[in-house]
Each structure stands twice: as structure tokens, then as C-alpha cells.
Design a protein around this nucleic acid. Structure first.
Length: 850
RNA sequence: GCCCUUGUGGCGGAAUGGUAGACGCAACGGACUUAAAAUCCGUUGGUUUGUAUAAAGCCGUGCCAGUUCGAGUCUGGCCAAGGGCACCA
């Protein structure tokens, strides 16, 4: 009979062990330990308040990896912290009159102690970083100054993305489909403002090239970054403004093109409306329409400007340029389809061979001149012909293949001095200024005499002032902190002002993984040796939504830090796992959607943990799908995992009582090969399954695979197998006890990373004193996997006919004869001729007949 | 429009080119129970025939072709869904 003790009460044991682990500090990472290091990292969260099952997935995946590597004998660094600056804190301040700092710190406390710890995570909290604390953002500011000193931070006046809801500018990466990344209902506007940028474009080539080094990254993430960087090969061709027009000075206009082979087809030139040459090239007669057009273009939102259903617009300036290749005179236009910040801001219009130019020419009735054709003959073009072909209408280049012509045309232009090869990137510099309060102040001082003066390093941190009124409108809140803003110039001591913009919070998260290596250092951003010991991150886990944003910025920061002499590594994250979303039916969208507060489909963690435990929730979320796929939260399914744990719990006590098993008595057998010991077939089979489970789980959980769902399935099979063995038994022989012991002990170890609490509890009940999480990961007995009998599948023409149990390793001839003598085969062979027999040793025999 | 990914039972999902549907959920049946729950043991892709409690056959991994002794898996072409980029010259 099962006694009272055998009731599985997850709530009790989970909180008990969480407290014990915290006190004993078993997850502490040790700098420069002699064991090999393993840096396991999960993207640190924004402390928004309440974690739900959707958040839980990423922490669980990362935790299983950390625990497993620890058992494999690695010195594991598994840190946690908070990305604590950001807008929601300001919104809370506006809505609820709570200072952003108080709101943030309260949330951190809740998330840390009531949520993350309750999941059974194994963090080294001694390295916690909180990006809104001055001891952290001192280094954010210090790094900004390093960028500034190395010429990688600069100010520029430019049209920038503005979100009216956030009341701040945004980086290109934070604009999605023309909308603010935080507000998918708010179109981004263009505003001309003086702002701080980081020169990420200096690293465009390296950021692209080094993607090849990231063999442990998902291809789709690398591809997304590659497309984002958007390298293109082409040429810069220089057009000269026609001198015959008195109104126009003699000027040169370079254009960037990837299609120099179409140069003879140019029928106009188009400048971006904001292009600096526009006013100088506008004739008196055209002045009015040009100015009107510029004004109209400037108020267009990004979404309107990008809309592809929109028809092309533009106006002529009235002046002309000379095509350097043909000497032809073509008109200059402006149109908003030319972008100021790509290439040279000027485009050569080749309507015959570019879809956009074709549309433009049709709409505005400009000439269309064909210079490439499929067969070398001219034809009427109904659409732009953009494929390669034979060059026509192009003087000495006629008859060439257009691909070959590209190079020849550039070469010719280079000799003549009006062309050169050029590479262009879609990537733009990173706009980091934010007109917000709750962020890291930019350590810059404006002096009327000295201009831009960086704050001296010894004055860091520039602490964010408290008691600043936050209204959500009317410019940077810091502008209103008069006392804080006014400061003496560090150079000339005259009255000066602080920069009142704060930094994009993505700056804070671009080096936190480096700071973890030495999180409490108040002398340096981190100790070089410590960083070089721990970095790069061996396994990074996080959401696919950061495929570009955070991951690109962090790669950039690492390369810059390397060039500042701070670290040796080129890339911060060796392996990346992008987990899929957790979804559930949302009554708001009326379909299965990502679990989130705004969709109204959130399942909190506490309620489920109270009833069924964190272990069951962890198991379900890992079991329901492979990590990269979406998972739909399903309470019944999660209860299924709870039942699995209960089954193990009960099994443990059944064995303990019925068989009088105490595992510690037989510890010597845990990993001892037993395959030569005589066993009854069912026991032998259990021993085989137990070893197979060790092998499979080890493989599934390894860094080659990370498929936790199949690993859990194998453990379930082992438990099912043990239940079959012990069915209707009241006592066990010595060898049975040994095998059962072997199975249970190893099962607990295999399950420990997945379900850390229940395994720790049962492990303790075996009389073990040391935590299961400090045990060695089990190995298996290779010989035990072997079987004497195998199932032989008989196929005819590839279709399964029958299955036979045969002895393993029979010679091919014997297998063939056996197959042919089967009744089912004989019937089917009647009136047919044998063509051939294919035998796959111990697996399949396929009879082909005609 | 361009690029990428994915299509397998009622559901989530398994399957080094070699027995499709492991494992779980749901459903159903049996044992235990006065009963129910829980538990333990089973059944469960579709369909036809049958001695309908034993068995046997056919079809089946989005659709159409192809390669192969053999295709969920490889190749080509469609269709559908999801994601990324999108006037980047």
C-alpha cells in the first residue's frame, strides 16, 4: 500500500528546494576555474511587471541547457539581469504618478523573487545587472565616450523617424512597415532634427563577412541580417550639368547604379527632394512647382511615402545633365522615390530596364529607350525588361551580353574619368538619441565657446535627476530639469548645458553580456582577463524578434569594444537558439495568437505553479514542440506532464516499499555495465531501454540538436517500461533490483535539468546528501543496446508485406531464402518472375518481381 | 513584387532514403470502487471484406510529375499558410 508520504505536492517541495539552492549557492560561476567554462545566456528581460507562460519558455530552455552543461562538468556562467530603462516606466509614471525608478525597481523585485526563482531557474544572482542603476549606466556612458573618441559617435542634422506616441525619434531598425515598433497603429513621421548617431556602417563589411563564422546560428537569422545590411555592387557614374543653360552653374551629379549596363538607356535623372543641389538647379520658371513639391513630400509620413499602391510623382527642375557616355542631354527631375540617404541621393532614370523608372516615365510621359533585349532586336516594351540580355543601342557595347557589359562599361568610364566601381550598403548609421527621461543620459556638454565637449570620464556617472516632471509631450523631459542641465564647461569653465536626450535602450543591452563577466567592477567596464575567460557566450537563447535589432547592435558593440582594446573576441555569441512564440486562442483576434496582455490571452504562472508545479509547466513547454517552433499553451497537456511526474513519484515509492529498494545501497551499480550478467528477457529489455534512454536523451539535449520534446518522450517510455516490469509483482530478485535501481537513478539524473525540483527531492530521499544538480551526467553501456533478435520487414516492390522476427546478423542468402519461403510472398509471386532482391542487413528485404 | 520557412490522425507532434503516426492530449473500453474521482491495463489514420470476439485487403504525410528496389524524407512544377525585406536605384 502506498503510504501518506507518497503524495506529490509540488508547491511544497519546489519552494523548499528553491530556498536551499539559494542558500547553498550551487549555481555560482567561478572566474578562472580549472573546469572548462560554459557561458549560457538568455536575453535579459524588460521588467514590465508580470511574467506569464509566454515568457517562461525562453528561461526554461536556457535553464535546461545550463543545468545539463553543469552536470557535464562545465564551469557554467548563467547570469540574469534586467533591461530596466524604457518607455513603459514613463507611461506608468504619467498614468499612475509613480516615479519610473520606483515602478521599475518594484517590478524587478517581483519578477526576480516571485517569478523567475519560482520557475526553478539556476542563475548566479551575484552577477545581476540592472541597466537603470548608476553603477551600470556609468559604463554605458563610458562606452559612449569611447565611441566618441574613436570617431564612431557623431551628430548630424537629418530627417529622422519620429513616433508621435513615444514622443521620440527611432532608429531605422525600430520602424516596422512604416509604423513604430511599439505602436503598430502609429505611422512614423519624418522630422528634421540634429541627433546623435553611432557609425555602425563602418562595420558593415565585417558584420556581413563574419556571419559566415557564426556556424552555430540559425540560417534564417543570418539571412535576415544579411538582407538588412544589404550589400550591393555597382558603380558611381558622374553626370555633368548642361552648361548651355545660364541659370545653372557647371555642376557634377554622381549617381549610384547597380546597372551600369543600362547607361545608354538613361532618359532623365532624378534627385531626392531633400537633395542639396535641388534649389541651385531649379530654373525660375519651375521654382514654384518645385517648392510646392518639396513641401508636399516633407509632410508625407513614411507609410504614405512607401506605399506601393501610390503612383509615382515628381516635377522637373528645368535644368539638364549630359550623359557622359552618350553626350545626350536629359532632364533633371525630383521625386520622392529617390531616397536622400541611399547611394548619392540621385538616380539615373532607365525606364526600359527598371520597374520604378518605367512607372515614373509612363506617368510623367518621359522617353523610354531600350538598350537590352533578349535576342538583340528591339521590341515594344509593355513593362520594364529587367533580366540580362544582349546590349543594343549602346554604341561600341552593342552585341555584348549585359552581364559582361557591366564591367566593360565601368572600365571605359574609369579611363575617361567619370565612373568608378562602388559598393553600397542598405544599412544606415544607428540613431541613438531619444527625447525621453527614463534612459541613460548622453554624457555630452554644449559650451558656447568650445562647442561639443564630452563629459570627463572621472565625472561619470552623470546621474539621472529625480523629480522630473514627465508629461509625455513637449520635448525631452530633462530639458525641464534646469539645475541638472546647467553645468560648467569642463574645458573653459563657462556656463554650459548638458545634452538632454537620453540613449536608445538598445545601447544598454549591447554590452550587458560582457558586463556579466565582471558585474561588480567599479573601476572598469569589466576586467579584460575575466571577459576573455568567459566570452564568447557559448549558448544564447532569445526571441526571433531580435534577429536584427539587438543581435546586430551587440555584434557591432563587440567589434568596437575589440577595437578599443577591451576584449579579444570578434563575435559575442557562438551559438544562438531562437525560440518560437507561446500562443493561445485570443478572444480579441479570434484566432491563435502570441500570448500577450494586449491580446487578452495570458496565462499567469503562479496559479498553475500553485496547483501543478513549475516542474510540470517546464516539462510541458519543452515537450509540446521543438524549441524553434511555436507552442500553443494547453492546460490539459500541461496536466499530462504533471501526471508523468506523479507517475514517477508513485513509482519511486512503490519500489521503495514493495521491493525495499534504497538506491544508495546499490550505488555501485549506477553506471556499472551489467550486460554480461544473466537476466530474464523482460529485465534484460528494461536494462536495454534504460541505456537507450540515456543515449537518446543525451543526444537530443546536446548542442547539435536541442530537441527536448523527443528527449522527454524517451523518458516517458522508460517509465512506461518500468511499470510493465513491476506489474503484478510483489518482490524482486537481486538482479531485478539492480536493474530497477539503475533505471530509476539514471532517470532522475536525466530528468534533473528538465524538472529540477522533483528530481532533487527524490534524490534526497534516496539518502543522497549532495544535490542531484551537482552529479555527473550519466553514461551508458554500449553493449547493453545490442539485441539478439531484430524485426525483418519483408517488402515486395517497396510495399510492406510482412514482418518477421529473426536472429540478428543472418547471412544475406539465408534472409533471401527465408523471405521467399513466406506464404504471403509465395502467393504474390504466382505467375511472376523474380527480378531482384534487395537486402538491408537486419532491417529489410525487398523482393522485386515482374 | 523579391527572399526564406512550413504543410503528417480529432489535436500538439515523432520518423540517419528502409515497418508512417513514437510520446502526449482528447475520446472510448476494461480492472479497482457501493459509486464517482484518481490510479493501473488496453483500444484509437481512413476504408472494404469477414467467422464482425482471431483475421485479411486496399488507400493514406497539401497537389502533380520525376529519381530510386524503396520517397513524409531527394529533384522539378503548382497550391496554401507563416515570416523577413520592400521605391535601397
Amino acid at each position: 500500500m502506498i503510504t501518506e508520504i507518497a503524495v506529490y505536492k509540488p508547491k511544497e517541495i519546489e519552494s523548499k528546494w528553491q530556498n536551499i539552492w539559494e542558500k547553498s549557492q550551487i549555481y555560482k560561476a567561478i572566474d578562472f576555474d580549472k573546469r572548462p567554462k560554459y557561458y549560457s545566456l538568455v536575453m535579459f528581460p524588460y521588467p514590465s511587471g508580470d511574467l506569464h507562460m509566454g515568457h517562461m519558455r525562453v528561461y526554461t530552455i536556457s535553464d535546461v541547457i545550463s543545468r545539463h552543461r553543469r552536470m557535464l562538468g562545465f564551469n557554467v556562467l548563467n547570469p540574469m539581469g534586467f533591461d530596466a530603462f524604457g518607455l513603459p516606466a514613463e507611461n506608468a509614471a504619467i498614468e499612475r504618478k509613480i516615479p519610473p525608478k520606483d515602478w521599475t525597481l518594484k517590478n524587478i523585485n517581483h519578477m526576480k523573487n516571485d517569478q523567475l526563482k519560482r520557475m526553478g531557474t539556476s542563475y548566479d544572482w551575484g552577477r545581476e545587472v540592472v541597466s537603470c542603476n548608476p553603477d551600470y549606466y556609468k559604463w554605458t556612458q563610458w562606452l559612449f565616450l569611447q565611441f566618441y573618441k574613436h570617431g564612431l559617435a557623431y551628430q548630424k542634422e537629418a530627417p529622422v523617424n519620429w513616433c508621435n506616441k513615444c514622443q521620440t525619434v527611432l532608429a531605422n531598425e525600430q520602424v516596422e512597415d512604416g509604423m513604430c515598433w511599439r505602436h503598430d497603429d502609429t505611422p512614423v513621421e519624418k522630422k528634421k532634427m540634429r541627433q546623435w548617431f553611432l557609425k555602425i556602417t563602418n562595420y558593415a563589411e565585417e558584420l556581413l563577412d563574419d556571419l559566415d563564422k557564426l556556424t552555430g546560428w540559425p540560417d534564417r537569422v543570418k539571412l535576415m541580417q544579411k538582407n538588412w545590411i544589404g550589400k550591393s555592387h555597382g558603380a558611381e557614374l558622374v553626370f555633368t550639368v548642361d552648361e548651355s543653360e545660364d541659370t545653372c552653374p557647371r555642376l557634377q551629379i554622381p549617381v549610384y547604379t547597380t546597372r551600369p549596363d543600362t547607361i545608354y538607356g538613361v532618359t532623365y535623372l532624378v534627385l531626392a527632394p531633400e537633395h542639396s543641389l535641388v534649389s541651385g538647379l531649379t530654373t525660375k520658371e519651375n521654382k514654384e512647382i518645385v517648392e510646392a513639391y518639396i513641401k508636399k513630400a516633407s509632410v508625407l509620413s513614411e507609410i504614405e511615402r512607401q506605399s506601393d499602391s501610390r503612383e509615382k510623382t515628381g516635377v522637373p527642375l528645368g535644368s539638364y545633365v549630359i550623359n557622359p557616355y552618350t553626350g545626350e542631354k536629359v532632364p533633371i527631375w525630383i521625386s520622392d522615390y529617390a531616397l536622400l540617404d541611399y547611394g548619392t541621393g540621385a538616380v539615373m532614370g532607365v525606364p526600359a530596364h527598371d520597374i520604378r523608372d518605367f512607372e515614373f516615365a509612363k506617368k510623367l510621359k518621359l522617353d523610354i529607350k531600350q538598350v537590352i533585349s533578349i535576342d538583340g532586336k528591339e521590341s515594344e516594351l509593355k513593362n520594364a525588361y529587367t533580366d540580362p540580355g544582349i546590349i543594343v543601342n549602346s554604341s561600341q557595347f552593342n552585341g555584348l551580353n549585359s552581364e559582361d557589359a557591366k564591367l566593360k562599361i565601368i572600365d571605359y568610364g574609369e579611363k575617361e574619368g567619370f565612373a568608378k566601381k562602388r559598393i553600397n550598403y542598405r544599412l544606415r548609421d544607428w540613431l541613438i538619441s531619444r527625447q525621453r527621461y527614463w534612459g541613460c543620459p548622453i554624457p555630452i556638454i554644449y559650451c558656447e565657446k568650445c562647442g561639443i565637449v564630452p563629459a570627463p570620464e572621472e565625472n561619470l556617472p552623470i546621474v539621472l535627476p529625480d523629480n522630473v516632471e514627465i508629461s509625455g509631450s513637449g520635448g525631452s523631459p530633462l530639458e525641464r530639469a534646469k539645475d541638472w542641465v546647467s553645468v560648467k564647461c569642463p574645458k573653459c569653465n563657462s556656463d554650459s548645458k548638458r545634452e538632454t536626450d537620453t540613449m536608445d535602450t538598445f545601447i544598454c543591452s549591447s554590452f550587458y553580456y560582457l558586463r556579466y563577466s565582471d558585474a561588480t567592477n567599479d573601476k572598469e567596464v569589466f576586467n579584460k582577463e575575466k571577459a576573455n575567460y568567459w566570452l564568447p557566450v557559448d549558448q544564447y537563447v532569445g526571441g526571433i524578434e531580435h534577429a536584427i535589432l539587438h543581435l546586430l547592435y551587440s555584434r557591432f558593440f563587440t567589434k568596437a569594444a575589440r577595437d578599443f582594446g577591451l576584449v579579444k573576441i570578434d563575435e559575442p555569441f557562438s551559438n544562438l537558439l531562437s525560440q518560437g512564440m507561446v500562443t493561445m486562442f485570443s478572444p480579441k483576434t479570434n484566432k491563435i495568437s502570441k500570448m500577450s496582455k494586449s491580446k487578452g490571452n495570458v496565462v499567469g504562472t503562479s496559479e498553475f505553479f500553485d496547483e501543478y508545479g513549475a516542474d510540470a509547466a517546464r516539462l510541458f513547454i519543452l515537450f509540446a514542440a521543438p524549441p524553434e517552433q511555436e507552442v500553443e499553451w494547453n492546460k490539459q497537456g500541461a496536466i499530462g506532464q504533471y501526471r508523468f511526474l506523479e507517475r514517477i513519484w508513485r513509482l519511486f515509492f512503490i519500489l521503495k516499499e514493495k521491493a525495499g529498494l534504497t538506491v544508495c545501497d546499490v550505488r555501485a551499480f549506477h553506471e556499472m555495465p551489467l550486460h554480461e550478467t544473466p537476466m530474464e528477457p523482460p529485465v534484460r529489455e528494461l536494462y536495454r531501454v534504460a541505456n537507450y534512454t540515456i543515449k537518446s536523451v543525451s543526444e537530443d539535449i546536446s548542442d547539435k540538436k536541442y530537441i527536448f520534446n523527443t528527449g522527454i518522450a524517451r523518458m516517458t517510455e522508460l517509465v512506461n517500461c518500468i511499470y510493465k516490469i513491476i506489474q503484478n509483482k510483489t518482490s524482486f530478485t537481486e538482479i531485478e533490483s539492480k536493474v530497477l535501481n539503475f533505471s530509476i537513478t539514471n532517470l532522475l539524473k536525466l530528468l534533473a535539468p528538465f524538472a529540477p525540483h522533483i528530481t532533487e527531492e527524490l534524490w534526497g530521499m534516496m539518502g543522497e546528501k549532495e544535490s542531484i544538480h551537482l552529479q555527473k551526467w550519466p553514461s551508458f553501456d554500449e553493449k547493453a543496446l545490442e539485441t539478439d533478435e531484430v524485426e525483418l520487414v519483408i517488402q515486395m516492390g517497396g510495399k510492406k508485406i510482412d514482418v518477421l522476427k529473426i536472429k540478428k546478423g543472418l547471412p544475406q542468402k539465408e534472409i533471401e531464402a527465408m523471405a521467399m519461403s513466406q506464404e504471403k510472398v509465395k502467393i504474390r509471386m504466382e505467375g511472376k518472375e523474380l527480378v531482384k532482391i534487395v537486402v538491408v542487413q537486419d532491417k529489410i528485404v525487398n523482393i522485386v518481381a515482374r
